[in-house]
């Protein structure tokens, strides 16, 4: 056990981190919890699946296609579900309804498209495990971890160091002032949705590989949400740390007690966190604005 479990937990945590980050980016920009994120993961994962089955492409092109699909669909979603709300500057209640509706729509489309069945990605790797001396690690875990890590690093760099990333942070901080500073607020919001959609696509493919592909796969988005709560709503860094922590804790607990209870653990972990440290790991405190 031990090392294999830890790597397993890290890989799972990394995927949760992708979800949590995608969720946090939208939360930061528009200050609402995007509940369509999960269904978007499913939808783009299925697009990736059918492309890979149809063309026999290898894993990385499939990932790219899923990410692109996720990004584009999220752009469309922003347009039909949130654009008018942003223009009208309505309260977060409307965003909420819009996002769950959009999520239900995505999931409905998937159900009509593929039926209630389970699907499996083709085997992308020649060998299931990689050996480092005496250490045996599953290939998919390794690839998930490395890819997620790399993507998150690129994203951090983008947000912290580039012009567009700065615009994203400015819009997150104060939309009106950002607009006065000459930032194109709507374009920035669109960019946020595109990035978030790409992350959803990536997470979707990984979840599909790790488990199986089915219309309710998106329900796993709840792990990303829990990670964001543990990490502190609104903090991307906190979300990543929270996700890794959640992945590790979950894998350890599952190993002892069995996978069926995993959602109960994640919920209890979140509840304990909220009681002990409601601001989350990062300690950011997003009270509703005074």
């Amino acid at each position: 056990m031990s090392v294999q479990i830890i790597i397993n937990g890290l890989a799972l945590g990394a995927v949760y981190a992708l979800i949590a980050t995608g969720f946090s980016i939208i939360f930061n920009v528009l200050k609402f919890s995007n509940f369509s994120h999960g269904a978007l993961m499913t939808l783009s994962a299925f697009i990736g699946y059918f492309v890979s089955v149809g063309t026999g492409l290898s894993l990385f092109p499939v990932i790219l296609i899923s990410m692109l699909a996720g990004g584009l669909i999220d752009l469309a979603g922003e347009f039909v579900a949130f654009r008018k709300l942003t223009i009208r500057n309505t309260s977060s209640i409307y965003y909420f309804v819009s996002s769950i509706t959009l999520g239900t729509l995505f999931e409905g489309i998937v159900t009509i498209w593929v039926g209630p069945n389970f699907y499996n990605y083709p085997r992308f790797f020649k060998s299931m495990v990689v050996k480092f001396g005496s250490l045996i690690v599953s290939t998919s875990d390794l690839i998930m971890f490395i890819t997620s890590f790399a993507i998150l690093m690129i994203l951090m760099f983008f947000i912290q160091k580039t012009r567009l990333g700065r615009a994203l942070r400015a819009v997150s901080y104060d939309r009106d002032t950002a607009s006065l500073m000459g930032i194109n607020v709507y374009a920035t919001i669109q960019m946020a949705f595109f990035i978030s959609g790409c992350l959803a696509g990536l997470a979707g493919v990984f979840l599909g590989i790790n488990y199986t592909l089915y219309p309710q796969l998106g329900n796993l988005v709840v792990k990303g949400f829990i990670a964001s709560v543990i990490g502190g709503l609104g903090s991307i860094f906190g979300a990543v740390v929270g996700a890794i922590l959640l992945g590790l804790m979950e894998t350890l607990l599952i190993n002892f007690i069995g996978s069926g209870y995993a959602p109960v653990f994640s919920f209890l972990i979140m509840l304990v966190f909220l009681l002990v440290r409601p601001r989350g790991i990062a300690g950011s405190n997003v009270q509703e604005k005074a």
């Binding site: 939360f27 609402f32 919890s33 509940f35 977060s92 909420f96 329900n219 709840v222 949400f225 829990i226 964001s228 709560v229 709503l233 069926g260 209870y261 995993a262 959602p263 109960v264 994640s266 919920f267 209890l268 979140m270 509840l271 909220l274 009681l275 409601p278 997003v286 009270q287 509703e288």
Partner: peptide, 28 residues
């Protein structure tokens, strides 16, 4: 109890986690 003190997004996120937990509990 832990959620009503916090900003309203928390109740949706926490109850979502709660729902998943109950479903898995019922299945188990």
């Amino acid at each position: 109890f832990p959620t009503v003190r916090l900003r309203r997004d928390y109740i949706s996120l926490v109850t979502l986690g709660f729902g998943e937990a109950i479903t898995s509990l019922l299945n188990q």
